[in-house]
Simulated assay, not measured.
Amino acid sequence: MRALIRTGSSNTPTYTATHPPPTSTSDPTNYIIRTHATSLTRGELAWPEPLIPSIPVPGYDLAGTVLSIPSAPHPTGGAYTFAPGDEVYALTSFSGLGNAREVSVAAEREISLKPRNVGWEEAATVPLSALSAWQALFVHGKLEPVFPAKGESRNEGKRVLVTAASGGVGIWGVQLAHQAGTTVVGTCGTSNVEFVKGLGADTVLDYSKTKLLEWVGEDREKRGFDVVLDCIGGQTLEDSWKCVREGGRLISVAEPPDSKTPAEGIKDGVQSTYFIVEADGAQLGEVTKLIEQGKCSGVLDSVYDLAEWKEAFERLEGGHAKGKVVLKLI
């Protein structure tokens, strides 16, 4: 079958039409899925975990149709949740093969039914980015994952900052924090200000015109944050420490916050977390509900055929993509 592979420790993939497809005997505990689309993540060709398999394949978002269920008995003794023909999507394990291949696999705990109101390419933009934001806000940030009508939220009065709010994780951080009833501030460049406002940000700071630390410092009590989701790292992460309210939380998906702890200016009781997103079909199912209700959506920058992988990675690594870059396989 057609596939994109990483050879050895190389960061340069290779396109092949002779990659061996998975079988029920080689993966008895996994679903076999016909891949319709996968999305790429900036920097993923430098990740060490995906080099564990002997023939590594990139692309950890999966949108496709179930071909067969696991051949092994269900570990609980019951029936498997999904059936052949089901349209599903998932974030699959970074230690396994990715999904830039015509037929892929996924474990039941990784899978959710695809939102009925979106196509394959848009569905492929969702899992990794949405789950990263979900876990940052609701697992590590301790916000309540409830999305009632405005004015009825258990998160009323909470303030959330999302840096790089127009990026893959930032897009979902803004949407989920907004739907959860918090006051959301996002940072981005000039060309994306209106876009981030449209995602639900109450205030958008153009980093080319406004210094985050200076803006917060004008009235730290009023403008400080209960949760900061930093998607940039570096100096922005260091500055973010000083933007968190007393007892608040600083969550980073870019690098460990402890490495950027300033010598002074941190409020009492601020907690920090760095994490790598984990596959979770149940959480993805909650995201699916929000998409089907029209409350959230993935953002599709561009679509390329698998054979056009070079152009896809060039678009991705160029730093100008708004949303996700997707490879289609059908």
Rank of each mutant, 00 (worst) to 15 (best):
G198F: 15
F195K: 15
W215K: 01
G186T: 05
I232N: 01
S259P: 01
V227L: 10
G181R: 02
I232V: 13
R245G: 07
K209D: 12
S208E: 10
Y207E: 07
G186F: 14
G217A: 09
R249Q: 10
A201F: 01
R223Y: 09
D268W: 03
I232G: 00
D239V: 11
C188S: 03
V228M: 08
P262M: 15
D206A: 09
F225P: 00
D226W: 00
L199E: 06
V204P: 05
D219R: 03
R249D: 03
S191L: 08
D206S: 07
V184Y: 05
V193P: 09
D202A: 12
L212H: 11
Y207I: 01
V196L: 15
C188V: 06
V204A: 14
R249F: 00
G224N: 02
L229D: 02
G189C: 11
K211S: 12
S252W: 03
S240Q: 07
D219E: 11
E255T: 12
D202M: 03
G265L: 08
I232W: 10
F225K: 01
I266K: 12
K197P: 00
K197D: 02
V193Y: 12
T261S: 14
V216I: 10
H178S: 14
A201Y: 03
H178G: 11
S240E: 03
D239Q: 08
K267E: 14
K211Q: 06
G198C: 04
L205I: 15
R245L: 13
L205D: 04
G186R: 11
G233Q: 02
F195P: 02
V185G: 12
S191V: 10
T190Y: 09
D268T: 11
